[in-house]
Protein backbone atom coordinates (compact mmCIF):
# COMPACT_ATOMS: atom_id res chain seq x y z
CA UNK A 1 0.00 0.00 0.00
CA UNK A 2 1.23 3.47 -0.88
CA UNK A 3 1.62 5.82 2.06
CA UNK A 4 -0.36 8.50 0.16
CA UNK A 5 -3.31 6.14 -0.20
CA UNK A 6 -3.19 5.26 3.50
CA UNK A 7 -3.03 8.97 4.39
CA UNK A 8 -6.09 9.73 2.28
CA UNK A 9 -7.90 6.78 3.86
CA UNK A 10 -7.06 8.04 7.34
CA UNK A 11 -8.43 11.47 6.43
CA UNK A 12 -11.75 9.84 5.44
CA UNK A 13 -11.77 7.78 8.66
CA UNK A 14 -11.20 10.74 10.94
CA UNK A 15 -13.92 12.70 9.13
CA UNK A 16 -16.31 9.74 9.78
CA UNK A 17 -16.86 9.09 6.06
CA UNK A 18 -17.12 5.59 4.60
CA UNK A 19 -14.40 4.47 2.14
CA UNK A 20 -13.17 1.26 0.48
CA UNK A 21 -9.65 0.17 -0.41
CA UNK A 22 -9.86 -2.07 -3.49
CA UNK A 23 -6.92 -4.45 -3.91
CA UNK A 24 -6.32 -6.76 -6.87
CA UNK A 25 -4.75 -9.57 -4.88
CA UNK A 26 -3.02 -11.07 -7.93
CA UNK A 27 -1.28 -7.88 -9.10
CA UNK A 28 -1.27 -5.84 -5.88
CA UNK A 29 -2.87 -2.90 -7.74
CA UNK A 30 -4.79 -0.76 -5.28
CA UNK A 31 -7.14 2.21 -5.19
CA UNK A 32 -9.14 4.17 -2.64
CA UNK A 33 -12.83 4.72 -3.39
CA UNK A 34 -14.62 7.28 -1.24
CA UNK A 35 -18.24 6.84 -0.28
CA UNK A 36 -19.18 9.82 -2.46
CA UNK A 37 -17.01 8.70 -5.37
CA UNK A 38 -18.66 5.32 -6.00
CA UNK A 39 -20.44 6.30 -9.21
CA UNK A 40 -17.54 6.35 -11.62
CA UNK A 41 -15.93 3.17 -10.30
CA UNK A 42 -16.06 -0.04 -12.40
CA UNK A 43 -17.03 -1.96 -9.25
CA UNK A 44 -19.60 0.64 -8.14
CA UNK A 45 -22.42 -1.86 -7.63
CA UNK A 46 -20.40 -4.21 -5.44
CA UNK A 47 -18.82 -1.31 -3.56
CA UNK A 48 -22.22 0.15 -2.75
CA UNK A 49 -23.44 -3.19 -1.42
CA UNK A 50 -20.38 -3.81 0.75
CA UNK A 51 -20.24 -0.24 2.03
CA UNK A 52 -23.94 -0.46 2.90
CA UNK A 53 -23.36 -3.60 4.93
CA UNK A 54 -20.19 -2.17 6.42
CA UNK A 55 -18.38 -5.40 5.70
CA UNK A 56 -15.17 -6.28 3.88
CA UNK A 57 -14.91 -9.18 1.43
CA UNK A 58 -13.33 -10.86 -1.57
CA UNK A 59 -15.07 -10.65 -4.94
CA UNK A 60 -14.28 -12.05 -8.39
CA UNK A 61 -14.66 -9.98 -11.53
CA UNK A 62 -13.44 -11.01 -14.99
CA UNK A 63 -10.93 -13.49 -13.64
CA UNK A 64 -9.49 -11.06 -11.09
CA UNK A 65 -9.92 -11.35 -7.34
CA UNK A 66 -10.44 -8.06 -5.61
CA UNK A 67 -10.41 -7.58 -1.88
CA UNK A 68 -12.75 -4.81 -0.74
CA UNK A 69 -11.51 -3.44 2.56
CA UNK A 70 -14.49 -1.47 3.81
CA UNK A 71 -13.88 1.23 6.38
CA UNK A 72 -16.98 2.61 8.06
CA UNK A 73 -16.92 4.88 11.10
CA UNK A 74 -17.49 3.38 14.55
CA UNK A 75 -21.15 3.50 15.56
CA UNK A 76 -22.02 6.22 18.06
CA UNK A 77 -25.06 6.68 20.23
CA UNK A 78 -26.56 9.86 21.62
CA UNK A 79 -29.05 9.61 24.47
CA UNK A 80 -31.14 12.70 25.17
CA UNK A 81 -32.31 12.59 28.77
CA UNK A 82 -30.25 11.69 31.82
CA UNK A 83 -33.12 9.59 33.13
CA UNK A 84 -33.44 6.24 34.90
CA UNK A 85 -33.57 4.28 31.62
CA UNK A 86 -30.35 6.01 30.51
CA UNK A 87 -28.59 4.86 33.67
CA UNK A 88 -28.94 1.28 32.41
CA UNK A 89 -28.81 1.99 28.67
CA UNK A 90 -25.52 3.92 28.65
CA UNK A 91 -23.44 1.20 30.39
CA UNK A 92 -25.04 -1.49 28.18
CA UNK A 93 -24.01 0.49 25.10
CA UNK A 94 -20.50 0.95 26.41
CA UNK A 95 -20.22 -2.81 26.85
CA UNK A 96 -21.00 -3.10 23.15
CA UNK A 97 -18.07 -0.76 22.37
CA UNK A 98 -20.44 2.03 21.33
CA UNK A 99 -19.30 5.57 21.86
CA UNK A 100 -22.09 7.06 24.02
CA UNK A 101 -22.93 10.65 24.91
CA UNK A 102 -25.81 11.75 27.14
CA UNK A 103 -27.35 15.18 26.75
CA UNK A 104 -29.73 16.81 29.22
CA UNK A 105 -30.12 20.53 30.01
CA UNK A 106 -31.45 19.71 33.49
CA UNK A 107 -28.44 19.82 35.79
CA UNK A 108 -30.29 17.94 38.55
CA UNK A 109 -30.55 14.88 36.29
CA UNK A 110 -27.22 15.09 34.48
CA UNK A 111 -24.86 14.44 37.38
CA UNK A 112 -21.60 12.49 37.12
CA UNK A 113 -22.67 10.41 40.15
CA UNK A 114 -25.62 9.02 38.22
CA UNK A 115 -23.48 8.41 35.12
CA UNK A 116 -19.96 7.32 35.97
CA UNK A 117 -17.72 6.74 32.90
CA UNK A 118 -20.19 8.27 30.41
CA UNK A 119 -19.82 11.80 29.03
CA UNK A 120 -22.83 13.84 30.14
CA UNK A 121 -23.38 17.23 28.53
CA UNK A 122 -25.58 19.65 30.48
CA UNK A 123 -26.98 21.62 27.57
CA UNK A 124 -29.98 21.91 25.27
CA UNK A 125 -29.76 19.45 22.34
CA UNK A 126 -29.98 22.15 19.66
CA UNK A 127 -26.94 23.85 21.24
CA UNK A 128 -24.73 20.78 21.46
CA UNK A 129 -25.80 18.51 18.58
CA UNK A 130 -24.27 20.61 15.77
CA UNK A 131 -20.88 20.26 17.46
CA UNK A 132 -21.32 16.50 17.94
CA UNK A 133 -21.96 16.10 14.22
CA UNK A 134 -24.75 13.54 13.93
CA UNK A 135 -24.46 11.30 10.86
CA UNK A 136 -25.66 8.06 9.26
CA UNK A 137 -23.48 6.05 11.67
CA UNK A 138 -25.11 7.59 14.74
CA UNK A 139 -28.11 6.35 16.74
CA UNK A 140 -30.19 8.81 18.75
CA UNK A 141 -32.74 8.06 21.45
CA UNK A 142 -34.82 10.76 23.16
CA UNK A 143 -36.05 9.82 26.62
CA UNK A 144 -37.07 13.01 28.45
CA UNK A 145 -40.85 13.04 27.75
CA UNK A 146 -40.43 16.81 27.32
CA UNK A 147 -41.03 18.03 23.75
CA UNK A 148 -38.96 21.16 24.38
CA UNK A 149 -35.94 18.91 24.85
CA UNK A 150 -36.88 15.92 22.67
CA UNK A 151 -38.21 17.63 19.53
CA UNK A 152 -35.11 19.64 18.56
CA UNK A 153 -33.01 16.47 18.99
CA UNK A 154 -35.38 14.43 16.80
CA UNK A 155 -35.33 17.13 14.13
CA UNK A 156 -31.52 17.18 14.12
CA UNK A 157 -31.43 13.37 13.89
CA UNK A 158 -33.89 13.29 10.96
CA UNK A 159 -31.90 15.95 9.08
CA UNK A 160 -28.61 14.12 9.72
CA UNK A 161 -30.06 10.81 8.52
CA UNK A 162 -29.18 8.96 11.75
CA UNK A 163 -29.52 5.21 11.16
CA UNK A 164 -31.67 4.80 14.27
CA UNK A 165 -33.98 7.34 15.86
CA UNK A 166 -36.15 6.40 18.82
CA UNK A 167 -38.51 8.37 21.06
CA UNK A 168 -39.85 7.34 24.46
CA UNK A 169 -43.51 7.97 25.15
CA UNK A 170 -46.92 6.40 24.80
CA UNK A 171 -48.85 6.05 21.56
CA UNK A 172 -50.89 9.15 22.54
CA UNK A 173 -47.72 11.16 23.13
CA UNK A 174 -46.43 10.04 19.76
CA UNK A 175 -49.68 11.01 18.00
CA UNK A 176 -49.23 14.54 19.32
CA UNK A 177 -45.57 14.44 18.23
CA UNK A 178 -46.60 13.36 14.72
CA UNK A 179 -48.98 16.33 14.54
CA UNK A 180 -46.25 18.77 15.60
CA UNK A 181 -43.78 17.36 13.06
CA UNK A 182 -46.34 17.47 10.25
CA UNK A 183 -47.00 21.11 11.05
CA UNK A 184 -43.26 21.73 11.00
CA UNK A 185 -43.19 20.40 7.43
CA UNK A 186 -41.87 16.86 7.85
CA UNK A 187 -43.24 14.20 5.49
CA UNK A 188 -44.89 11.01 6.71
CA UNK A 189 -41.89 9.06 5.45
CA UNK A 190 -39.58 11.24 7.57
CA UNK A 191 -41.75 10.86 10.65
CA UNK A 192 -42.01 7.10 10.11
CA UNK A 193 -38.26 6.88 10.68
CA UNK A 194 -38.84 7.67 14.35
CA UNK A 195 -39.26 4.46 16.33
CA UNK A 196 -42.08 5.26 18.72
CA UNK A 197 -43.07 3.99 21.14
CA UNK A 198 -39.38 3.23 21.47
CA UNK A 199 -37.94 -0.28 21.79
CA UNK A 200 -38.73 -3.80 20.64
CA UNK A 201 -41.99 -5.14 21.99
CA UNK A 202 -40.66 -7.47 24.68
CA UNK A 203 -43.19 -6.35 27.27
CA UNK A 204 -40.53 -4.30 29.06
CA UNK A 205 -41.74 -3.14 32.49
CA UNK A 206 -38.77 -1.72 34.42
CA UNK A 207 -36.33 1.00 33.30
CA UNK A 208 -33.68 -1.71 32.79
CA UNK A 209 -35.97 -3.78 30.60
CA UNK A 210 -36.87 -0.71 28.56
CA UNK A 211 -33.14 -0.05 28.11
CA UNK A 212 -32.69 -3.61 26.78
CA UNK A 213 -35.60 -3.20 24.38
CA UNK A 214 -34.18 0.09 23.05
CA UNK A 215 -30.72 -1.39 22.56
CA UNK A 216 -32.17 -4.48 20.86
CA UNK A 217 -34.19 -2.30 18.49
CA UNK A 218 -31.13 -0.23 17.69
CA UNK A 219 -29.07 -3.36 16.90
CA UNK A 220 -31.93 -4.83 14.85
CA UNK A 221 -31.87 -1.65 12.74
CA UNK A 222 -28.09 -1.63 12.44
CA UNK A 223 -27.95 -5.32 11.47
CA UNK A 224 -31.12 -5.49 9.38
CA UNK A 225 -29.25 -7.15 6.51
CA UNK A 226 -28.20 -10.02 8.73
CA UNK A 227 -31.61 -10.72 10.22
CA UNK A 228 -33.28 -14.04 9.49
CA UNK A 229 -36.66 -12.35 9.23
CA UNK A 230 -37.30 -8.90 7.82
Amino acid sequence: MKLDLLSELNVERSARRGAVVVTDIETGAQRLVRGEGLKGDPLAEELREYLGLGKSGLIEREGHHFFLNVQTPPVRAVIVGAVHVSQVLAPLMRNLDLDVTIIDPRAAFATPERFPDVPVVIEWPDKVLPALGLDAYTALAVLTHDPRIDDPALIAALRADCFYIGALGSRKTHERRVERFKEAGFSEADIARIHAPIGLDIGAASPGEIAVSILAEMIATLRKDRRRTA
Binding site: L3, L6, S7, L9, N10, R13, L58, N69, Q71
Partner: peptide, 26 residues
Protein backbone atom coordinates in the same frame (compact mmCIF):
# COMPACT_ATOMS: atom_id res chain seq x y z
CA UNK B 1 -10.35 -3.72 20.66
CA UNK B 2 -12.28 -2.48 17.65
CA UNK B 3 -11.34 1.12 18.26
CA UNK B 4 -7.56 0.63 18.28
CA UNK B 5 -6.32 2.86 15.49
CA UNK B 6 -4.26 0.34 13.52
CA UNK B 7 -4.19 2.32 10.28
CA UNK B 8 -3.31 5.54 12.10
CA UNK B 9 -0.39 3.74 13.75
CA UNK B 10 0.71 2.30 10.37
CA UNK B 11 0.87 5.79 8.91
CA UNK B 12 2.69 7.20 11.94
CA UNK B 13 5.34 4.44 11.89
CA UNK B 14 5.98 4.89 8.15
CA UNK B 15 6.24 8.67 8.51
CA UNK B 16 8.78 8.10 11.28
CA UNK B 17 10.88 6.25 8.67
CA UNK B 18 10.18 2.70 9.84
CA UNK B 19 9.67 -0.28 7.54
CA UNK B 20 6.00 -1.25 7.90
CA UNK B 21 3.88 -4.18 6.71
CA UNK B 22 0.12 -4.55 6.86
CA UNK B 23 -1.65 -7.91 7.20
CA UNK B 24 -5.36 -8.17 6.39
CA UNK B 25 -7.71 -11.15 6.81
CA UNK B 26 -9.28 -11.45 3.33
Amino acid sequence: SSDTDILGQAEAWRRAGKGVALATVI
